[in-house]
Design a protein around this nucleic acid. Structure first.
Lengths: 333, 333
DNA sequence: TATTCCAATACAAACGGTTTCATTGCAAGC
DNA sequence: GCTTGCAATGAAACCGTTTGTATTGGAATA
């Protein structure tokens, strides 16, 4: 592979000039610029990115910590991150953390060893929990989707409380009073927030909250199916299920139908996230739209600004959600 | 950040010794090794990975070219790649190519500029089409899922022909004779192969093939829904739909139900891939299992071997598929 | 005891760019 | 005509490791 010296020789200039031809062409005379570019072209010269990066001390790549890369919601967020990353000339390193603190910590280390310029965390763990001795700010860090407040670094999230409240309100307005909750993992902040929103809506309608009607479980279809089975076999008189993710909802729908129920007549079910599949479900899922791609885009934009030193460190962004009404929930007759 | 010189000074040795303390501890005396390690620990020394990588000329990262990162099937494959990558100490760079040759070419360039050691292509384009002037072998390259034979580099795939043939045979054995085909993109090799398998099955059953019953479209739910609409409105007497992906099938099911059909009584539908959602669909999807994670694992294993120089260059791996019978297709009565 | 050998370590040269600082030459100003 | 200033370019240092080669000292051998 040709290197800078080869090009400089062929063009009859110094390596410095060749370097400048690419990084700051304006500095060169029209004539030499031409010569250098021609020589580079002829030799098919491509700067050794490693040498550049080593010298300049910026890798132009950011690491994304994803709890589960195969999860549709995360995949869409990553897709959004990607779009902005290429727009700003960043490479994307992706690590599937499986929600393991050890792997997340290793990710942070990648910026200490200069493999990445910054890290975007899609999981819920806080930076300070990962590296307690590390004052925030040392590592360019932004957290998206699953955030916990207050933070000392930029975050992007939705308002889980009010989104859940809105959905629960919708269900209540439809006349439902015996509503089961298919919650996510119990230790998750998002779970707590969404439950809080649910309870707040109940309160507005003067409906007492019954802890016995909430079932916790993983944010997955299998989890939803199981939770639904437990909940429905205990409580035959439920008229609606408020779930904390579309996957949970889809699992629950399967279970309900296997139990011989006809949806949405016998049971209303709502989701959360608005993944594509919800639209094609039977019955099509009523859910709350979480702007996944947008979350990714904003996260990467924040990271980009952070790396350019254009933001101070704690820019919190809350994106708006929307109820998407389809037919998995209907008025109680 | 402490660097090697700091550690060497504190330990009273040369930088070379510190370097060897990590890379080849056996070469050092018990005593100095201890001292060095202690000094490194005290200074919280982390080798500058950039400098290492620059010197050693291997980045220990591989680039994955994904046509669409938000697609569940690809996401699962990436997940498999990831697992083997971390096992072998590789980092993963991910690029969403949107099936754009320009982006794919840029990916290949990343190994020429030493950003990545090799590239795994999940899309269908051949290396030689991307860089015609580049003899195969110059760039460590493996292609997975969507492969075209014959190749001069390692590939991982399933036998699309026989998988499709098996599924079509199943449908025929169920008594179906008027079978519509919801195919994928027309220019794709996988599409052609699966169609070939379908036709082969028809032939075995002495059923004439009718080109008018195949509808091409994107490998997506929206695509499936549209294709199904076109096909079903033209042909009201179809008893089954052979589709080329689960997403297409799910879209088709939605359409069929919207058209007032009851599935699987009025119409049998089969998928392809076995994504998780198929299991939770209504009706649960009969499909052919494509071992996505495994494909990713094998692809990364091949890449790993390739980079170690342990394989010659054209190791073709064909993974086996399996019919998974659920209830979206039933015997014709 | 002198020689040889080997293990342990140090020295210094890479690796391939970028960037600072110095130099050159020419145009403008006096 | 001489000085000044600026644009264009070159020389060389530098980035932080790794690694080939040289050196050292002590143990083993003769």
């Amino acid at each position: 592979m040709a290197q800078i010296r080869d090009v400089s020789k062929r063009a009859g200039v110094s390596p410095a000039t060749v370097s400048r031809a690419f990084s700051d062409p304006g500095k060169l005379s029209k004539d030499t610029l031409q010569r250098v570019l021609k020589a580079a072209e002829e030799l098919n010269y491509k700067p050794n990115s490693l040498a550049q990066v080593f010298r300049v001390k910026r890798t132009n790549s950011v690491l994304v910590l994803v709890p589960d890369v195969a999860n549709v919601l995360f995949a869409r967020i990553v897709s959004g991150i990607e779009r902005i990353a290429v727009e700003n000339n960043y490479y994307l390193l992706v690590s599937d953390t499986k929600d393991d603190p050890e792997i997340e910590r290793a990710g942070l280390e990648m910026v200490e060893t200069h493999r990445a310029d910054g890290v975007i965390q899609l999981g819920e763990r806080r930076l300070t929990d990962l590296a307690p001795d590390l004052e925030a700010g040392r590592i360019p860090f932004v957290q998206a989707v699953e955030t916990v407040h207050p933070m000392h670094y930029p975050t992007v999230q939705i308002n889980n409380f009010s989104a859940a409240e809105a959905m629960a309100t919708y269900l209540l307005a439809l006349g439902h009073r015996k509503i089961g909750v298919l919650a996510g993992l119990k230790d998750r902040h998002v779970t707590a927030e969404r439950l809080r929103g649910f309870r707040s809506a109940l309160k507005s309608f003067d409906v007492p909250f019954n802890e016995g009607l909430v079932e916790y479980g993983p944010y997955s279809m299998a989890g939803g199916a199981q939770s639904a089975l437990r909940l429905l076999s205990r409580n035959r008189d439920l008229t609606a299920l408020f779930t904390m993710s579309d996957e949970i909802a889809i699992g629950a729908i399967r279970t309900a139908q296997d139990l011989g129920m006809s949806l949405p007549d016998d049971l209303s079910v709502t989701g959360f996230d608005n993944i594509d599949f919800g639209k094609y479900c039977t019955p099509p899922l009523t859910t709350v739209m979480q702007p996944a791609e947008r979350i990714g885009e904003v996260a990467m934009t924040l990271m980009s600004n952070l790396l350019r030193g254009e933001i101070t460190g704690d820019a919190q962004q809350t994106l708006s959600t929307e109820l998407v009404i389809r037919s998995s929930a209907r008025r109680l007759t």
